[in-house]
Amino acid sequence: MEQVFFFYFAFVIAAAAVLVVALRNPIYSALALLIMFFHVAGLYVTLHAEFLAAVQIVVYAGAILVLYLFVVMLLNLRQDDRYHRQWPMAVAVGSTLVIEAVILMAMKGWTTPVVATGAETTVGGTGNTEAIGDVLYSTYLFPFEVASLILLVAMIGAIILAKKDLGEPAES
């Protein structure tokens, strides 16, 4: 049974990796990478690394990939005018999602059990999370602080690099 899961995840991971490299449109590549991230998270769950699976989805799929898509669309926007043809569709899909969200918020009977089960699974994975936290804040405390320094440097670097008029004094 475990092998079936492994081969499914492995096959999709390998196929999505090939697609990331092979596809011509960067947006499709990024979406293939998204599929790969989700399946890597599934692989982590089969390896009993539940905390890392959650972090993988939140950080990789949630933050990093959105940043990629943001930049892809930012750079392609000036070359072709796809945006203007797509915005009625975007409005339709977006308003549908908003209506769905409102309906779900109104149905409190549905939302509370979902939240409760989510909390329960987190508690169920506490063994893994607790072990990682123990090691991270004792043995690897110094690397942990260095990692925060890396993030700070990356943040400052990104702001300075993406700033306009680097050589000239900023007037605005």
């Binding site: 972090v55 990789y60 930012l74 750079l75 123990d134 690897y140 990356a154 990104a158 690099l161």
Partner: peptide
């Protein structure tokens, strides 16, 4: 040994930093 998962955590941090700086460079 849970140390390997801690290292994945650090690799994730470095990946996030790499993406932020790399995309800023691409924009520049």
């Amino acid at each position: 040994d849970v140390a390997g998962q801690v290292f994945v955590f650090f690799a994730l941090t470095v990946a996030a930093a790499e993406v932020a700086v790399g995309l800023a460079i691409i924009i520049a």
